[in-house]
Amino acid sequence: MKIRALGLWEVALFFLLAGVIVLNAWLSPYFLDVYNLIDSTFSFSEKALIALPMALLIIAREIDVSVASIVALCAVLMGVAADAGASVPVLALLSLCVGTAAGAFNGLIVNALGVHSIVVTIGTLSLYRGIAVSIVRDGSYTGFPGGFSWFGQHYLWGYVPVEFLIYVIATLIFGVLLHTTNHGRRIYAIGTNPDAARYSGVPVTRYRVALFALTGFMCGLAAVLLASRLSSVRLDIATGWELQVITMVVLGGVAIAGGAGTILGVTLAVFLIGLLTFGLSLVNVPGIVMNIYIGCMLIAAITLQRGATFVRLHLLSSNKET
């Protein structure tokens, strides 16, 4: 457990992050500008919010690829409600409830069918997005009440975005949840060996539904921030987010086979991707080319992870021999 908390992986990410910062600062004089840096957090805060529960899911050997569709569904329903004259708290609550329900539905189906969650959530990916699209069609919702923009556009004390602060608080909560509570220990147990966890009295199916519901809840939260920031909802909202979210988690060192990973790693990966994207945009690298850099980084990360596992096994076996 202790090895996991401060693994080779987090150290490697930390140096990679430092490298990206130094390189960017050298490439562009605008990178280290405080206001620019703060504004760069808008590009990743919402996705990073979803990466937190996704990390828990993947550690528990599950995955949810329907997250972007849940965000879209929540955003569209908020748009409908706003047109009907709903107030700001009602809109936020609606989004959180719809998200939680959609996530819980994923979890219940996974339990009921006993198939891998990737199959189920590929299905609900189409389902949720389909519902959203059939409601919004080729129009858009822009009738949000005035106070709604507070979530996604307001700065606290003049320069801390509300969005970013929410992300930081969520990270702390998830870190504490995963690393210091009984729930966190059980999530690792389920991901390492679900059968043995069940035989040890861990209610595996209940945890599964809870984790999917939590993921849906965070999607609902992200949808509030996103809709508030854009102040308009169209059918292509949050397209492709699922892959960006999973990239953050996997780059953060969460083992795709389950059982290992830390919130610290995911946080480092979030900033790594966020600052790399920001730096590249400052030197006028187009968005499509940016994907190449991020793809390369992910593959490098997985290669490194394999290497680290190999080294650990090697060290372990040599320990045994002596």
């Binding site: 509570t181 009984n182 147990a189 390492t192 060996n193 040890s200």
Partner: peptide, 24 residues
């Protein structure tokens, strides 16, 4: 749970009983 420590294996069934509330 083989990769878990002896400690984590033995405490797993009764984390609730021995924890500080929800905390380990």
């Amino acid at each position: 749970i083989l990769p878990f420590s002896i400690l984590a294996n033995i405490s797993l069934p009764q984390l609730d009983r021995i924890g500080h509330g929800i905390f380990l």
